[in-house]
Nucleic acid binder design. Structure first.
Lengths: 336, 336
DNA sequence: TTGAAAGCGCTAACAA
DNA sequence: TTGTTAGCGCTTTCAA
């Protein structure tokens, strides 16, 4: 198992260069030589040393993915898409779980600088656009999922946040709701801005007054949604429906309602975002928005690898994949 | 950004070797020189080239993890444990999602042979013990989670399947059940054998006859649990409780019961395994077994890295972490 | 179509 | 305490 390319060369009666050519599908090798080499490779169970190859070729065939928390299914599904697309192209994926810490994400970005990875995909709201642009300008290849960056090179794949949020809130309005609360995620993340924008648009189109007292946020977490709901209950402003920027926070809404004896959907209609698997099993099943998580992962991984191989010189760098509203019992209740 | 170690050396007025020493915390460098070097490194934004380092040192500081499906929370939580433990020791983690295909797993095992990773952790039932032993004998470092391998070197971390399964079934018996079905996972996986063993033990200790007609299996998947339940319903053998080898399959039981109008827990008590997050939200909440997934990941990653660094010559190589039963409403109903 | 030789960027043995 | 030198195992000119 510790054979080197020269050992194979010796056994096959050729030079190391020839073995290398065979192994890298060079066309300049005669069929006969090729067979000899392949036979030797087989017999010796030879495996080219990855580091040597990487050093010489200056590419690692590896990409990194930074996520805040791999356990959250939103992220693991994206990762799966990335991994599957990478595998099909002989690329490996290094997983970088930041535990929601910017510092850890910055450290992982260093894998670009020391050439551990050929490219990096960020699925996190913490690293700023400027930092990503900096890396891009230094010549590194990177892409983001879930947001877009104002740049000509950096790849991005996101979903139509504004439209589906508008659709979700419009749906609530059609059910007869006029006081609709919004629980956002991180208040400075692009997802959050856009989902709120959709919320506002739906209100505007239906001439429903915007009430700041109905806006709160919960950091995309169950506990955050729970606390936000309790705060909303404390306030004077009544509301009959709530739109949360993701399903996790909607679970928090459910918990708060259970504790306070608020019935869903009779007293309060709820709509989330993600179509987290859990949402189909809870009672009542949660209306939500199906996001193409796996597909976004595949899309960005493919484009990134293309970019690493100069395969998309003239192509676009921003992709949007559509999400769609799924109405379930948590909001399927016509208000008079 | 394309500086090499000699460039730094030049700037600092020392040799490349000295820079290397400083960067690798060698003690043989004077404080003054060290500061000079560090300053140059800083000013030039120098990052050692990973591949060169790897080639020279013959280690990649990377480990691989093979899982059947990263989306399943059982696996993503283990991965998180591995990743976090690895990060703390400056190791990276390459994720290998096999989509339940043995062939893909075999290919990923090749990352050991070509030295892309220093070690590999398998969290999958598909690769046989013999294959793992083969790799180990070739000198590669690997470990498994969820099963144990009869070997002196290969690391393993699992949980006490027999005991907690016995406890789960005993709990059902204490609730007054005498006809208890068992839905297993892959019929040849060690988890499955051991969980079934616990099931049998509980029956034996309580002189409850074993009925083959109450045994079925569902490949650890929701759909499998659903189908197994339907098959059990078809048979003549009546039963009032079911123990499933994981929570996913219990979800399938729920679905089958909903369709057939079988009430949980009044008509059928259900107990699963995993404490999948979902189980606390469904109705009725599912009794299950809390498995230390994250901890198993941490444990094995730490031991594996220790082994890579010859830090555990005399230590054990098999670890068992305890799981415990969580009784919720799905089985909390005393039968007369 | 093949081989010889140089070198990717780093570390470590040896010498000073 | 520091520098010199020799590779780690591969790919890729260049020459034949």
């Amino acid at each position: 198992m510790d054979n080197k390319i020269v050992d194979v060369a010796k056994r096959a009666g050729v030079s190391a260069a020839t073995v290398s050519r065979v192994l890298n599908d060079s066309s300049l090798v005669s069929e006969k030589t090729k067979q000899k080499v392949l036979k030797a490779v087989e017999e010796m169970d030879y495996h080219p040393h990855a580091a040597a190859k990487q050093l010489r070729s200056q590419r690692t065939m590896t990409i990194g993915v930074i996520v805040p928390d791999i356990i959250v299914s939103y992220f693991s599904e994206i990762i799966k898409g990335i991994e599957n697309a990478a595998y099909a192209r002989k690329y490996k994926v290094i997983i970088c779980d930041s535990d929601n810490e910017l510092e850890k994400e910055m450290e992982y970005l260093g894998l670009l600088s020391n050439r551990t990875v050929d490219g990096m995909i960020l699925v996190t709201p913490f690293v700023s656009d400027d930092i990503i642009k900096d890396y891009s300008q230094k010549g590194y290849t990177l892409g983001v999922i879930g947001r877009a960056i104002d740049d000509e090179v950096i790849l991005s794949c996101k979903t139509n946040n504004v439209q589906f949020s508008e659709a979700a809130v419009r749906h609530l309005i059609e059910q007869g709701h006029k006081q609709i609360a919004y629980i956002g995620g991180f208040s400075d993340s692009m997802e959050n801005y856009e989902r709120m924008e959709g919320y506002l648009k739906a209100l505007k189109d239906n001439r429903i007054p915007f009430k700041p007292g109905l806006i709160d946020s919960g950091h995309f977490m169950e506990s955050g949604g729970y606390e936000a709901t309790l705060r909303l209950f404390e306030r004077q402003e009544p509301f009959t429906a709530v739109f949360t920027a993701n399903d996790e926070m909607a679970l928090g809404v459910y918990r708060a309602c259970r504790e306070r004896g608020v019935r869903i959907p009779e007293d309060l209609a709820v709509v989330g975002v993600d179509n987290n698997r859990i949402t189909g099993y809870i009672v009542p099943p949660l209306s939500t928005v199906e996001q193409p998580k796996y597909e976004m992962g595949v899309c960005l991984a493919e484009k990134l690898i293309d970019q690493l191989n100069d395969l998309n010189a003239s192509e676009q760098n921003k992709y949007v994949i559509e999400s769609r509203l799924i109405v379930r019992d948590s909001s399927n209740y016509l208000r008079n």
